[in-house]
Simulated scan of single mutants.
Amino acid sequence: EEGQAFAGLVQAMYDTNAVAIVRRCFSERSSPELGFLRPHIAHDHICMYYVKLPFGEDVREFNFDNLDAIKRNQPSDEQLKTIDHLITTMDLTHADRGGEEAFRPDLVFNPYIQRMFQSIARRAVTPEEPLSLSNTIMEMNDTLVQSVASKSKRTLDTLHEQFTLRDTERRQKMMTGEKLFGNIDNSTKKMRLEENDNVEELTTDSTSFEAQLAAKKKAAIRTIGTITPIEDFKTLIEQGSSSFTEVCQQMSTVILEFINNSRGDALFDKALQCIQCLRDMCIQKLEPKIFNDLEILIKKQAGNIDGRKDFWKKVVDEKISLITSDECIESNVISIEAQKFLEENTSTEVVNNALITNEDDGDEEDLFDLI
């Protein structure tokens, strides 16, 4: 029944000129491969031939330039004649000893399979003797190959003389820094580097690669980010490209983002570190009003926005008060007012008094606009 079913399938595929796409596994441990079965009907048997299908990644297309487009690539008559003679000397049609075709595909043995089965047979007949490396068939083929090669040797030598190979690699000339940039002293180099975004001079003699990379990162900083705000804040102040007030306003904006966008108290510690850094820098630069305005704004938000009272409690616990006149001569806040300001139940009047005390006549942007 199975044979009849198989014969019917082959006959149906043959009549409809169809093939079967199949997946073949040689063994349980081998990877599957895709192929197709082609029906075949003969006078004494019926069968299917399996053909492995190639994948798109198995096909490689190489596009070469037209050699005729360049005159120097066109072969001469002597070169063409030498190539024709090489093909004639390597022709295998009558290269065999009997004048017949040599290395016919249907008569040439696979050397790997031939060697394996020959070794198995010799081991079965003479198990104690060592395997011999001699192979009569391979020796005959090797003799034939040497005969063809000897006939073509003179032509190959002529071919090597007519088709010369040249190295066309373009090598870049090595140039020193002095030849490339000219003879410039260190003072001129430093002045040019300072003009270019205030980047410090980087020399391989005194500065390591890590220091150069860090200096390049500092030079690329233009605004304060939320990843390393303290480092960015100090770097912008060192660069001096923006005014101290503008840099402090950026820092204040980042602090307010930490407070307002924090899930629970996840960003409170980072905000406290930024506040402390801003406070120290305002004292150092004699700009107490910038920090005091920010802290007043934070306390006012703590009374109006739900969930920000926890942050203000942390500020009180850390005793981060307003900048007083004892810490900075430019401040109009005395120590008693700063202590009362940190009290959790301080009335709004005290906050307003602090605002009036810290009021300035300048045109600086009010931090209350950041709410």
Rank of each mutant, 00 (worst) to 15 (best):
F341R: 01
D68R: 10
Q339Y: 12
L294D: 09
T223P: 00
I137L: 07
T223R: 11
G177V: 14
A149Q: 07
D58K: 05
A12I: 03
V315K: 12
V315H: 09
E128A: 08
E139H: 03
A338M: 00
Q273H: 09
Y50L: 13
N63A: 15
C277M: 15
E100M: 04
D232G: 04
A302G: 08
K285R: 12
A95F: 10
L67F: 09
L367Y: 10
V108R: 08
E128D: 14
L107A: 10
D369G: 06
I70K: 15
L144C: 01
T223C: 02
F181W: 13
I305K: 05
K313L: 13
F291Q: 01
G99D: 04
I230Q: 09
M13A: 15
R263S: 06
F109R: 11
F268E: 15
S208A: 05
F341I: 01
G307R: 09
S119A: 09
I336P: 00
S331C: 01
H43L: 06
L202A: 08
L342I: 00
L9T: 08
M191N: 10
K190T: 13
A220K: 10
F181K: 04
N352M: 14
V351A: 11
A214Y: 09
E61T: 11
N66C: 11
V10H: 07
E200P: 00
R72K: 07
N17I: 11
A219C: 03
Q284G: 05
D68Q: 10
I87E: 15
I336A: 08
S147F: 04
D293T: 09
K313T: 04
V125L: 13
P75C: 07
K189S: 14
T176H: 03
P130A: 15
C277L: 06
L86Q: 07
D265I: 02
L236Y: 01
A220Y: 10
A149V: 03
I70C: 06
D96T: 13
N17Q: 04
Q11M: 04
S119N: 11
R222I: 01
D366L: 03
S206P: 01
E1L: 11
F244N: 12
S134N: 13
E178H: 06
S243Y: 07
E349W: 09
